[in-house]
Amino acid sequence: MSKVLIVGAGGVGRVVVHKCAQRKDIFSAITLASRTKSKCDEIAAEIKDVTVKTVQVDADNVPALVALIQQEQPQLLINVALPYQDLTIMDACLETGVDYLDTANYEPHETAKFEYSWQWAYHDRFKEQGVMALLGSGFDPGVTNVFTALAAKKYLDVIEELDIIDANAGNHGQPFATNFNPEINIREITATCRHWENGQWVESAPLTTKRVFDFPEGIGPMNIYRLYHEEMESLVKHIPTIKKAQFWMTFSDNYLKHLEVLQNVGMTRIDEVEFQGQKIVPIQFLKALLPDPASLGPLTKGKTCIGVIARGTKDGQRKQVYIYNICDHEACYQETNSQAISYTTGVPAVVGGIMMVTGQWHAPGVWNMEQFDPEVFLAELGPMGLPHRVVEGEWPEL
């Protein structure tokens, strides 16, 4: 039995609290912390059979985080705050000797550049302190890394090509909205695209490479666009046989048209501009105008389909395998008051936490998901609400 401290009270934080509360056999006590305590209180009130303690904390403030950790004495801290805050929270965990888990890698405020280098640099310090950090325990990154590790362990002797494909076939009926933090979402999508090919990163303009993919189980054909996503960075490092890796995501024509207009008028800029004597960041102002992703839960219908296609050889023969999950927005909302985007990120965070506190995945240092046994993780993930399916040899190359 372990005490868990959850930092962040957005849509993913809500799912993490619900799912930790469902696992009283693992988590003996839950504390939820955020800059805005009222958000924590709202989530805590939804949990009927477990008491969730709520506190206010500024996740940019290391001494405040250290004081909170020392007060609560958790065995694990689950970070579902903003990616900007990863390093301050890691610093606090390092100082207090508490294991750390997040769902997205660090990104500095001043540039839309997300990569693992900053967090990997903590490895030796965490190892020396006997503390573990598990990076990217969401879905993508996270479960997609685990799917890739499963393909390498069970279905292919050598992985040569990898396509990670993320479809949100849901509809919330809003003219324009993002399914998670608008600022992070738009920064990610509008960044220069990179994919891995023949031992190097190849750059291209964002959203210029388009394919049509026929998704399984009734979702059908959808437009997918290539963009950069962080799990590719760790996967090509830890599975060096991969010669080509790409990440694909679905976007509706309506979404892309709105995004194009917002870019053209400067609303997606991340640098400061002066307005009526004050400094503002346009994308942060835009975030304030757009619907709160948490408000989309009761409105969203349809499904997500996120998975990986791995190609390579098995027993000397060319082979490919497609491993994926289908998740229903309405079912997620009924269970956790959150739509499937938050659900598919929050559930793996809790499962990663279970792996750590039970010792099934535990080693001092800083680690990515694919560096541990995928089968024990997936054995827990399915019953927690995200079962996977495996199809061998039916999908065309992208």
Rank of each mutant, 00 (worst) to 15 (best):
D140V: 08
L68N: 06
T31L: 01
I89C: 13
M232D: 04
K243R: 11
Q276H: 14
D124P: 00
V62Q: 02
Q360R: 02
G297P: 03
N179A: 12
V261L: 02
I78W: 01
E330H: 13
N264T: 12
I69L: 14
K37V: 12
L256E: 08
N145C: 07
V391W: 08
I78M: 04
D41R: 10
G170K: 01
I43F: 14
G218N: 09
K303L: 14
M1Y: 14
F126G: 13
M356N: 05
L378C: 00
A81C: 11
K210Q: 15
V202T: 12
M90P: 07
I239G: 01
V12C: 03
K279P: 07
K301Y: 09
P141R: 08
G266N: 04
V158Y: 07
L5D: 14
E160L: 08
Y122G: 06
V321G: 01
E370H: 09
A112T: 15
A167E: 15
I47S: 04
R194Y: 14
P383L: 06
E183H: 08
A67N: 05
P282W: 10
A167D: 14
T358E: 07
A45V: 09
P282V: 10
A167T: 15
K3M: 04
K113P: 06
M232W: 10
A191V: 14
V308Q: 02
A379L: 05
D25H: 08
K210S: 13
Y322T: 04
Q339Y: 01
K127N: 04
A245T: 07
L286G: 01
L286H: 09
T36W: 05
P374W: 03
T51K: 08
G138I: 14
G385F: 05
F176P: 01
S38A: 05
R187D: 10
F126R: 02
C93V: 00
F114R: 09
L65S: 07
C305I: 14
I189C: 02
G142S: 03
A167K: 05
C305T: 07
A294L: 09
I164D: 04
V281E: 04
L101D: 02
A151Y: 05
S204M: 07
I78S: 07
Q73L: 11
I309S: 09
V158K: 15
P221R: 06
G297N: 12
A177Y: 04
Y225D: 12
V351C: 06
T148I: 02
